[in-house]
Design a protein around this nucleic acid. Structure first.
Lengths: 341, 341
DNA sequence: CTGGGCGGTTGACACGTTTCAGGGCATAGG
DNA sequence: CCTATGCCCTGAAACGTGTCAACCGCCCAG
């Protein structure tokens, strides 16, 4: 059992209160006493017990972040943004992975509630679980990340995904593509739905019909999901087969790219691909991916700022921030053969 | 302020001790009382205060994991392995990113010490910081991940990186390559050094000389670092330029690949690449990467098991586990043009 | 000489939980 | 009727810290 504040007090010949003051308000302690106490602390290897602090303070010095897929670099970039804000504030980050499964999400939220975290940053699964509502009703600040708020009574940091989908689709339409695929996911995330809607709207405006849009929904928003979708596309009769795809994220786009190459379909000459998120691997792919860029790190840091502000109390006003995505054009959608422009 | 165990007790008309029993040893409480208490808990929305539990128990229900680069999928896979072991045991995971910088590592370790984590899993930076020693001396279990233990007095889960380097190099040598580059890093990580040594040994055995091995050490073990190294290689006179590279990890290998493609060097025809770690993106690259596979997830889960065993106390014996890496051959090192085999 | 002010220190209490010795009560056995 | 035996339950202590009112000397102004 490690040394306690009491051991330090004894060793330095002062009271516990003084030791506490040295730790928390060093300026009220005389220099001589302070030195003596610090010496005792060093000698005993004393380390504050956070549990006791927390118990006393009523809340802990931690923040929770719950993401859909820790293996998706988009979320690690978000996490890094969160860390950049949260660590300097003296808070530790508890990173949780829900794997897009509501049960895991709920379990993590329960743990975070028991930990009395200062607040929770979360990209929730499709339906907002009751656990999240319970948490908020209990007064724990919750900021939604990469997801719009259902109402004005909470903070959210999101991206205009309808616009993102539109940008991606318009780009392909401009390049002369008419039969376009949207590759989304089966889990029904609103972000994905919005991207779809943006694509659909652009296609309708350009072609006057929506049936030009083929929507595929593989099980998961992963590389494997992308491969699966690509295989389906390659299997279609050439007359109906799309010539380009907008993917709901870059992982899927990479999967599509990989499968196309494997099947001997040349990208972008025979099939163009647009991804979403613009993770670093998008640019690093050997056929660099055109992608819809989101401010990944900023998404995290801004959300963390809002969370800290809300946790601080005093006249916090809820903010629903919506970033504008930007299309980054790279090889995977460039026209090489056919004229185009 | 949320409801406490005392509020529950009052509301249910029992003592605090009984409520605690309902929570921790429900079998000793009569069914009727138990129901009444559970009802009160639900009605009040009571959630246990972990801080108080921890204070009482002396240690918390968390485990720390400190990694070198959260943006490297290798480490997120390790983290997933850790989670798989640690969550079922009722423990939360605090994931920290040291960014390969000793100061950040130390700061994180301090926080973990204050949190009284059950133990720490860490891939340390090059030199073992005193903070780590201090932590161990204080009795906190520490398991090294992807790093050999300096002595028999602690657990470590590592990979035979000399063998890994050798496998990579021998593969290239068999393919007829003679001038080989090893692309490592400047930070001096022993893992990287061992990989280098394996490569060097293989080259010496095959060619009788070591001067065939060009060693490059870009700043960071990242995609950007790989690009940087590749640019240097392309800039060399053809007579001395290597025809293949072993990279210290897959991120760098992807960077090399990307830069080679950008410069019009065909992979693998003109330049072969072997990565290390075999992250998912290695296979997903449009020129799939040959890579030295490590059991990423298992590395994490095994380390977590050892940590939990050590934390449990009772006759724990330190284990230094060393996994054997396996070479996974893909396109990036296949000979296409020249005969070879 | 006295009173007031001030810098520095003290010591007790509270935070919410777990644990454990002990106590009340009913039932069964003598 | 008394005692032994379980079964449930109670109540207090303890974990380590932060806070705060109170206190102690000491100096200075009056």
């Amino acid at each position: 059992m490690p040394a306690s504040i009491r051991d330090v007090a004894e060793s330095a010949g002062v009271s516990v209160g003084t030791v506490s003051n040295v730790l928390n308000r060093p300026e009220v302690v005389s220099a001589a006493t302070r030195e003596r106490v610090l010496g005792a602390i060093a000698a005993l290897g004393f380390v504050r017990n956070e549990s006791a602090r927390q118990l006393r303070a009523g809340s802990s010095r931690t923040v929770g972040l719950v993401v859909l897929d820790i293996a998706n670099p988009f979320f690690t970039d978000v996490a890094r943004g969160v860390e950049d804000v949260v660590n300097p504030a003296g808070l530790a980050l508890i990173l949780c992975n829900s794997d897009d499964r509501p049960e895991k999400e709920s379990a993590h939220l329960d743990v975070l509630a028991e930990q009395r975290v200062q607040g929770v940053l979360i990209t929730p699964t499709a339906e907002l679980t009751p656990h999240l509502q319970t948490l908020r009703r209990r007064g724990v600040p919750v900021v939604l990340v990469d997801r719009r708020a259902p109402g004005p009574d909470q903070c959210a940091v999101a991206v205009d995904d309808v616009l993102g989908g539109r940008l991606a689709a318009e780009h392909l339409l401009e390049r002369g593509h008419r039969r376009i695929a949207f590759i989304g996911g089966a889990s029904g995330l609103p972000q994905v739905q919005e991207r779809h809607d943006g694509v659909e709207a652009a296609v309708r405006e350009a072609t006057g019909a929506v049936d030009e849009l083929l929507t595929l929904s593989p099980e998961a928003l992963t590389v494997a999901g992308g491969r699966e979708a690509a295989a389906r596309i390659v299997g279609m009769p050439a007359s109906r087969r799309p010539t380009a795809a907008v993917c709901a994220n870059d992982l899927m786009a990479l999967g599509v790219l990989q499968e196309m190459v494997r099947q001997g379909v040349r990208v972008p000459d025979e099939f163009a691909i647009v991804g979403y998120d613009d993770i670093d691997f998008a640019a690093a792919a050997a056929v660099p991916l055109t992608s819809v860029r989101k401010p990944r790190q900023e998404l995290g840091s801004r959300a963390a700022e809002l969370l800290l502000d809300e946790a601080r109390g005093e006249g916090h006003v809820h903010v629903q921030e919506v970033f504008e995505p930007v299309l980054v054009v790279r090889e995977s959608s460039r026209v090489r053969r056919t004229g185009g422009q």
